[in-house]
Write a protein that binds this DNA or RNA. Structure first.
Length: 833
DNA sequence: GCAAGGTC
């Protein structure tokens, strides 16, 4: 039996389809799907991995008490002892009681262990245990093995790891490597009839990347986390990609802070081409505005002089009318970065984009979403794709026009790789087929695809120069004369600005000018899309990881908002590392690693040599960092306090801070003077941000609250503030009391201690009736009663509109709805396997 | 309780 190992399930299926004479049989080994077929009289089976199936980690059996423990070196530590270089003082490890060189006992050590962690041996541990089990089971019976993972460095490593698993159970089966760059019949058949050898050097290059990332990441993350320990779960991370990315954001913020705005003045005049003598008010079709030819006056005096010069004039002369046509080329095919840049501009974060793209891919609506390529391969039948999506009425006219051409021509980007085709739609979808966010992304991808097959747009720009009292004004207009791709791709489009028709020498009405003082703006913060593009430019991360890295920076509270601003903590982390361990804050480390990896791949150096050099460098920088731990600790503590600052305590004047409850992890506001001062304020659920302005009603601090899927709102932190008083609403009669022959009101109110809103019976002590309520939105009572349980129906109006519901949590109607739900979400069902 | 890289 011939065993074919691919990087992912999808590839295993496609290869089986393309190689088998007959349709392959879908089977399972344990829980892993595999595909069996016959070729040239031999039994074949393909199995898909899930990316990396092994994961490097510090050897648990040799060095640590238990996996993942951050204590340090265990027991006798012999293996570590052997790997520590002579330059580092060797602790005299003894059984059960390790000591430092100075004789300090190391049991339970933390920070002191870090210099040794730099040199700790690394092992590859199983990560996908189920898949490994299935793989080994097949490998046992295999006569030969073909590694058919992706054709790149990580793919080679994934394949080498898989092979090492196979070798544990089958030491002799011959192994070969299939190299393909597209799932087409000729490509795959060609790859399998020209099998090559595994490239061990390339796999080693990938493995050195893993080692270096782990060592630097673990050592610096533990350092930052332990130097100012803030409780379990409060990790201050650092890494080869995330820290330079954070540094980019901080650098931009520093530029903004250093920026000194300059005043300038802008003069804008109002004109009307219909009224020759300046008698109309200037809001007819002939009205237009034009800016002074000096776009920015640096001196107020010069601006005033220009204003004085036009003062009193009622007409202007058209000095020149220039028209110029320019073509706007159709956009190039989408790769991952370009897709994320486009969705970011549409308000969809890169991380969310990739989650949705993954589901669209899995459901068969779009092609593989992780690509660098921006050139459609010749093997892709563009006309067939156009036909496939032409069933969507919104695309039909464009599809028809494209198909009517004798040949279809597509735009092409600069990046041409053979990994996968650029992202294109693979099936028709309409707004009825997909949930809104999914369709939004599908629509963008489908329209972009059609745009890449469309003509350039032609825009006619008009520039009109006007003269008033010796001053020149310039009006500009843009009109789309040939829509081309813009007919199908309206994204990122500026509105047309039309000008009324004018001729040289013509007089138009001048209805006065305004002079506005403005200030130059600091460089803009990065949007998530822009940051991803910048990361790509600098070689930070890959198409598959950049969005996740940015999300990680949000999760550890190094950054906030979009456009992205760094937190005080983020700034402090970059500052501390930049001072003492500058290698981790720049993109040069990645660039250099790439060079070393190329050398390993070419056989010019070894994985061991490269990793050891990197360990020595880290050892050096950690050595510079450790003596300044007090300084770093204070800087981080100050930053954390500044990030948590909400306002001043009304009782003792110290700082009120955002805190997390130890027990429930929920957020509240507490005084930094605790335990002397016990002032606390409850917080509603949702993301909390500090706001500078105090409450206009009571003078207490305010916070900005963003609850899940709601618009942010600014609220006073004091529940007693009049702005926080919600009227109690009588929503109806209590059904429990009614059953007991009594009549009591159900009242909706907010608990001032917990801020939770609920409906309680006035007769609660006796009947114990209480219903939960959504925490946000305006609540109104209705006359209606729930058909299932008799509870009064209420309406909650949020930004998404009114929503009528039965508040009874145990209402029998709820169960029925739950049963209905899975059927309603049919859209995520996987397209035929 | 660490990273980054694959993929779900």
């Amino acid at each position: 039996m011939k065993l074919v190992v691919t990087e992912k399930h999808d590839a295993a299926q496609k290869i089986a389809d393309l190689l088998g004479a007959k349709k392959p049989k879908a089977d399972k080994v344990f829980n892993t799907p595999v595909y069996r077929f016959e070729k040239d009289g031999e039994e074949w089976v393909t199995i898909g991995l899930r990316g990396h199936i092994l994961e490097p980690d510090f050897a648990p059996s040799l060095v640590y008490k238990k996996k993942g423990g951050w204590q340090g070196v265990d027991a006798d530590g012999q293996t570590l002892q052997a790997s520590i270089p002579d330059s580092l003082p060797k602790p005299p490890f003894k059984k059960k009681k390790p000591f430092t060189a100075d004789g300090v006992e190391l049991k339970g050590w933390k920070m002191e262990a870090l210099p040794y962690l730099v040199y700790a041996p690394i092992e590859k541990l199983p990560k996908e245990k189920d898949i490994i089990r299935s793989l080994k089971n097949l490998a046992k019976k295999a006569d030969s093995i073909v590694i058919a993972t992706d054709f790149d460095r990580e793919g080679e490593l994934i394949g080498a790891d898989a092979l090492s698993c196979c070798r544990e159970v089958n030491a002799t089966a011959p192994v070969s490597r299939a190299r393909y760059s597209a799932f087409t019949k000729p490509e795959i058949q060609g790859a399998f009839s020209n099998l090559v050898a595994m490239d061990d050097n390339l796999a080693s290059a990938g493995a050195s990347r893993q080692d270096i990332d782990l060592i630097w990441g673990a050592v610096l993350t533990r350092y930052l986390t332990l130097v100012k320990f803030a409780g379990y779960g409060n990790v201050r991370s650092s890494g080869r990609v995330q820290t330079p990315t954070l540094a980019l954001i901080c650098q931009r913020e520093r530029e903004r802070m250093a920026f000194v705005p300059e005043d300038y003045w802008v003069i804008s005049g109002q004109f009307d081409a219909d009224a020759r003598e300046g008698v109309t008010a200037g809001d007819g079709p002939g009205a237009f505005s034009a800016d002074h030819a000096t776009a920015r006056f640096k001196e107020e005096g010069a601006a005033k002089a220009a204003m004085n010069a036009v003062e009193g004039h009622r007409s202007a002369r058209v000095e020149a009318v220039e028209k110029r046509k320019r073509t706007v080329p159709a956009p190039i095919p989408f790769n991952t970065t370009a897709l994320m840049a486009a969705t970011s501009a549409e308000g969809l974060s890169p991380a969310r984009t990739m989650r949705i793209a993954e589901s669209l891919y899995m459901d068969g609506y779009i092609s593989y979403p992780r690509v660098d390529n921006t050139v459609y391969p010749a093997s892709l039948d563009l006309a067939e794709v156009v036909r496939a999506i032409s069933g969507n009425p919104a695309y039909a006219p464009t599809c028809k026009a494209i198909l009517a051409q004798s040949s279809i021509r597509a735009t092409r980007g600069k990046k041409e790789t053979t990994d996968h085709p650029p992202i294109y739609p693979t099936a028709k979808a309409t707004p009825d087929d997909l949930p809104p966010a999914e369709y939004k992304l599908y629509n963008l991808i489908a329209r972009r695809f059609l745009a890449t097959l469309s003509d350039a747009a032609v825009v006619e720009g008009t520039k009109v120069t006007l003269e008033v009292g010796g001053e020149r004004f310039i009006a500009r207009g843009d009109v789309l004369v040939k829509p081309g791709f813009r007919a199908i791709y309206p994204y990122g489009l500026k509105k047309d600005e039309t000008l009324p028709p004018m001729e040289e020498g013509q007089q138009v009405a001048f209805n006065g000018a305004d002079c506005v003082q403005k200030q130059t703006e600091p460089p803009a913060r990065y949007s998530q899309g822009k940051l991803i593009q910048e990361m790509e430019k600098l070689g930070l991360g890959t198409k598959s990881t950049r969005h996740a890295i940015i999300e990680r920076l949000y999760n550890v509270s190094y950054i906030q908002n979009d456009p992205i601003e760094p937190s005080q903590l983020g700034m402090a982390v970059v500052e501390a590392l930049d001072k003492f361990a500058p290698h981790i804050t720049g993109s040069a480390m990645t660039a250099e690693l790439e060079e070393r990896m190329d050398e390993i791949a070419e056989g010019k150096t070894s994985r061991e040599a490269v990793v050891t050099t990197s360990r020595d460098l880290l050892s050096q920088e950690l050595g510079a960092l450790m003596p300044h731990s007090e300084e770093v600790k204070e800087a981080l503590a100050d930053a954390v306090a500044a990030d948590a600052y909400i306002g001043k305590c009304p009782k003792c004047g110290k700082d009120l801070q955002l805190k997390a409850s130890q027990k429930t992890r929920s957020m509240f506001i507490g005084c930094s003077g605790w335990p002397e001062c016990d002032v606390t304020f409850p917080l509603p659920s949702g993301k909390i941000e500090s706001v500078e302005e105090l409450c206009p009603t009571c003078g207490m601090p305010q916070v900005k609250v963003t609850a899940f899927r709601t618009k942010p709102r600014v609220v006073c932190i004091d529940p007693a503030c009049p702005t926080n008083q919600e009227p109690e609403v009588v929503v109806g009669k209590c059904p429990t009391c009614a059953a007991m022959g009594k009549s009591s009101n159900l009242v909706a109110r907010r608990n001032p201690k917990t801020l939770k809103r609920s409906i309680t019976c006035e007769n609660f002590d006796e009947c114990q009736t209480r219903y939960p309520l959504p925490q946000y939105g305006k609540l109104t009572a209705t006359e209606e009663v729930c058909e299932h349980c008799g509870a009064p129906m209420v309406v909650v109006t949020t930004a998404r509109g009114p929503w009528k519901l039965c508040p009874n949590f145990d209402c029998p109607g709820k169960e029925q709805e739950k049963e209905k739900k899975p059927a309603a979400r049919k859209t995520t069902k996987r397209k035929k396997a």
